[in-house]
Structures are given as structure tokens and as C-alpha cells.
């Protein structure tokens, strides 16, 4: 295990940012700390880096107790959401910074900088100032700068949070490929479940200063430990008192095979997908509406449109989690939020 976190707590006044967190982060993997804003994931990352001091608990990096070490001596590379570029230095100088203060020979520094700039595809920008780079390029520079000192672990705090959707996606794929090349133990913080599912080997879901679940993307998606994890990783909808993924709901146009009867109240087409909002029979308002996603072709073959009576049931083998408190406010908000964004 590369990073061992034991019993870490952090309070800001009355606010509990982290409450007694234990976590082991495996060597050489790409781990995502995933959770909603204010859930404590960035605080945990900053505590690992030594930029924040925990109230209680210990941090061990590569077998060394780092709890009391200043950030300078932890051997971690840190990448910030807003790049934290040294604005008055050229790209090459930024990358060389860590090596120069270690008093490495000039020749070695130059070679290493060249190698890293090639790795992050910025070799032709070596003499530019950070202000002359785009956001994505600046973040790649920050990554090269962090990698230059060959840290034991690389920590990224919402690294793509300030970038637009397209660049975000490109950088995400690129980070994955980079990690496959460099193999340094990497931990990145994100609130974007898609980012975590796509890039990470392992995901740690953090909410309200607690770890909800740790596992591979498949584990978390297929076997969520609780309502929160299910709701946070991917979409969910409530069908007959159970949480289920909208694409795991089967739609029948006749009641012969059972299922929950209802009526289509809205149909939205998003690309190849069709989202149906189905109001179960007897439901008064949109509070108990069920969201179903189908492919467009399938929806057309069933002849679904607004007003069509349908019967819904969970797909065979789909993950279904009973709702404890009906209906959980946070999850409801999530589904509604997603809808709102599409309308």
C-alpha cells in the first residue's frame, strides 16, 4: 500500500470535514476520490500532501510516517484545480523549478525538462509564459512540473474542474494513457462520476466526511453499498419503492406480464437515447414519476409517445436497492437535477 491513512479527522469550527477516516491506497494505481462538493475529499487530499494538518490520525506514504512532515519533505506531486502556475516563469522554468531547487546539474535539468515537455506535448511551448497557454495546456504544464521531481505519489485536486467539457474529456483520456506509461501512484479528486468511472482503477466514494464505499468502478456501479453510492454513481430512479437504474427498467405496452402500470407523461430525445417520464397509476404529482431510458429504435418499435399506457418492471438481474426513507431527498434531487439540465 502506497498511502495509509488512519483515523484522520478534521474539523473547521463545528463543521466536520473528515470524521475518523481510514483508507489504504494501492501502489501504482489510479485512484479517484469521488463525492459531492464539501464532502471532504479535497481536505483528505490536502492532508495527504501536508498542505492541511489533520486534528487526529496518521498518514503514511510508502511506509514512512508523514504525519508531521512538512509538504516539502513528503515527496508528493500536487496538481491544483486552477493550475497554480508560476506566472513569471516560462513553461520550461516552471517544469524545472523542483529540479533547480534540488541543485541538480544544469545538463540533467535540461534533459529532464525536455523529456517531460515531450511527455505532456508542450515541447514547442517551452519558452512561452503560462498566460500564453490555454487552460488545458497550463494544466499539462502543472502535471509535468509535479512529475519532474519524481514524486512517490501524484495528487490531483479536481485537475480538470476549471476546463470546458471537451478539453476535460481529452485530458481525462490523456491522463489515463499517461498513467499507463508512468505508473506513479496517483490519487485524484473529482465530483464528476463519469470522470471517476472512466479514468480510475479504484474509486473511493466520500460524503459528509465519511467513506461510503471503496472499490473498482464496476463494483461500485453494479454493487453499490447503499443508496448514496447508487445515486451518486450513475442515474437512478424509484420504481415501486426501489432504486433502479433508468436503463434497467423494462417497458411493456400490455399488462399481461405484470409490472407497475402508468402513463408516459413526457418523452425527451437525447441523441440516440429516449428518456421517458412515466407517472405510475394513482400517483397525484411528479413526486413518484419514474425515469426510463431506452434506445430510440426500441422506443419507436413500441410506439411510445406521451399518453401511452405502459407497464414497468426492473430488468432481470438488475441491481435494485430498497429505498429506506421514501423518497430520499438527495436522490430525488439528483434525478430532478438531471432532468432539469436536459429540458
Amino acid at each position: 500500500m502506497s498511502i495509509e491513512v488512519r483515523g484522520i479527522s478534521k474539523h473547521y469550527g463545528d463543521f466536520v470535514a473528515l470524521g475518523d477516516v481510514d483508507l489504504s491506497i494501492p501502489t501504482g494505481r489510479l485512484t479517484a476520490l469521488l463525492g459531492p462538493s464539501g464532502g471532504g475529499k479535497s481536505t483528505l487530499l490536502r492532508i495527504i500532501a501536508g498542505l492541511e494538518v489533520a486534528d487526529t490520525g496518521t498518514v503514511e506514504i510508502e511506509g514512512v510516517d508523514a504525519t508531521r512532515l512538512p509538504p516539502q519533505r513528503r515527496d508528493v506531486g500536487f496538481v491544483f484545480q486552477h493550475y497554480a502556475a508560476f506566472k513569471h516563469m516560462t513553461v520550461a522554468k516552471n517544469v524545472a523549478f523542483g529540479l533547480e531547487i534540488r541543485k541538480r546539474p544544469k545538463k540533467e535539468v535540461r534533459a529532464k525538462v525536455q523529456e517531460l515537455l515531450e511527455l505532456v506535448h508542450l515541447e514547442q511551448f517551452a519558452d512561452r509564459l503560462p498566460a500564453q497557454l490555454s487552460g488545458g495546456q497550463r494544466q499539462r504544464m502543472a502535471l509535468a512540473r509535479a512529475l519532474a521531481v519524481e514524486p512517490k505519489v501524484l495528487l490531483l485536486d479536481e485537475p480538470f474542474g476549471a476546463l470546458d467539457a471537451k478539453v476535460r474529456k481529452e485530458l481525462r483520456d490523456w491522463l489515463r494513457r499517461l498513467h499507463d506509461e508512468v505508473h506513479v501512484t496517483t490519487v485524484f479528486v473529482t465530483h464528476d462520476q463519469e470522470e471517476a468511472l472512466e479514468v480510475a482503477d479504484e474509486i473511493v466514494v466520500i460524503n459528509h466526511g465519511r467513506i461510503e464505499q471503496v472499490g473498482s468502478p464496476e463494483d461500485l456501479y453494479d454493487e453499490p453499498a447503499n443508496e448514496f453510492v447508487m445515486g451518486f454513481l450513475g442515474e437512478v430512479t424509484t420504481l415501486d419503492g426501489h432504486l433502479v437504474r433508468p436503463h434497467d427498467v423494462q417497458v411493456h405496452t400490455s399488462g399481461e406480464r405484470g409490472g407497475v402500470p402508468g402513463t408516459v407523461v413526457r418523452a425527451l430525445r437525447i441523441g440516440f437515447e429516449v428518456r421517458l417520464i412515466v407517472r405510475p397509476e394513482g400517483a397525484a404529482d411528479e413526486g413518484s414519476d419514474v425515469v426510463v431510458t431506452l434506445t430510440r429504435t426500441f422506443a419507436r418499435s413500441l410506439g411510445l409517445e406521451v399518453g401511452t399506457p405502459v407497464w414497468l418492471e426492473p430488468e432481470q438481474g438488475a441491481r435494485v436497492v430498497p429505498v429506506r426513507r421514501a423518497p430520499a431527498a438527495a436522490l430525488d434531487g439528483d434525478v430532478l437535477g438531471a432532468e432539469g439540465a436536459l429540458v
Partner: peptide
């Protein structure tokens, strides 16, 4: 930005540097 100084610190720079 405080994070610029934090970045320098995590790269190993002493407060004087």
C-alpha cells in the same frame, strides 16, 4: 494565489526560496 506557494512547497521549496 495561496496555491502557487503551496505548489512551490510541495515541489520542495523552503519558505525562504
Amino acid at each position: 494565489d495561496a496555491d502557487v506557494e503551496e505548489a512551490a512547497a510541495s515541489l520542495g521549496a523552503s519558505p525562504a526560496t
